[in-house]
C-alpha cells in the first residue's frame, strides 16, 4: 500500500475542514468517497469553560501515523489526513479531524471510525477540564466504552 498519502499533524492552531478535504482530494480522479469526522469541545450543559489538552510530542504524531497506516492497509483507503490539537480549547472549537478517502463509501466510513476508536485509546493525549467558574475540574477519566469501541475491531 506504499504511496498512499497519510498526513498527520499535531498542532495548537485550529484547522479548516474544507481546506483539508480539498488538499486530500486535489488533482485526483480515483477517489469516490470522502468521509470527514471532526470532534469538538462540549460545554457539558454550561459546566465547562475550556479543555486543556496535553500530549506527548513525537509519540503523538508517531502513534496517530501508525493507526492511520493500519487503517490504510485494513480498509484499502486511498488517502488519510488526521489532525489533533493541543493546548487550551474552548467549547464549540475543534479538537480533532479525521478525513478518509476510498473508491466506495463503506471503506471511508469504516476507516474513519477505526482511526477514531484507536486514536482515543492509544494516541498519547490527555484532557483536563476547566469549570465555568474558572476552577480546574481535573483530568478526564478514560472510559470503558472507548476500550470496548476499540476492541470490537479485533473480533472477526
Amino acid at each position: 500500500m506504499g504511496g498512499v498519502p497519510v498526513t498527520v499533524r499535531v498542532q495548537r492552531e485550529d484547522f479548516d475542514l474544507a481546506a483539508e478535504v480539498q488538499a486530500l482530494s486535489a488533482g485526483r480522479h480515483d477517489i469516490g468517497a470522502v468521509v470527514t469526522f471532526s470532534g469538538l469541545c462540549r460545554d457539558e450543559a454550561g459546566m465547562l469553560s475550556a479543555l486543556e489538552l496535553e500530549h506527548y510530542p513525537g509519540m503523538a504524531e508517531a502513534e496517530i501515523n501508525r493507526i492511520c497506516e493500519e487503517a490504510v492497509t485494513r480498509f484499502g483507503l486511498q488517502a488519510v489526513s488526521a489532525i489533533h490539537r493541543y493546548g487550551k480549547i474552548l467549547p464549540g472549537e475543534n479538537i480533532v479531524l479525521v478525513v478518509t478517502a476510498s473508491p466506495h463509501r463503506q471503506a471511508a466510513f469504516d476507516g474513519a471510525n477505526f482511526i477514531m476508536d484507536f486514536l482515543k485509546t492509544s494516541a498519547p493525549f490527555w484532557k483536563k477540564e476547566h469549570a465555568a467558574d474558572g476552577i480546574e475540574r481535573g483530568w478526564v477519566s478514560a472510559k470503558d466504552e472507548d476500550d470496548s469501541a476499540r476492541d470490537r475491531w479485533s473480533k472477526d
Binding site: H84, K120, T121
Partner: peptide, 10 residues
C-alpha cells in the same frame, strides 16, 4: 521511558 495515565484524546 514514558509513564502516563490512560489516554483521553480524540
Amino acid at each position: 521511558i514514558a509513564l502516563f495515565p490512560p489516554m483521553t484524546g480524540g
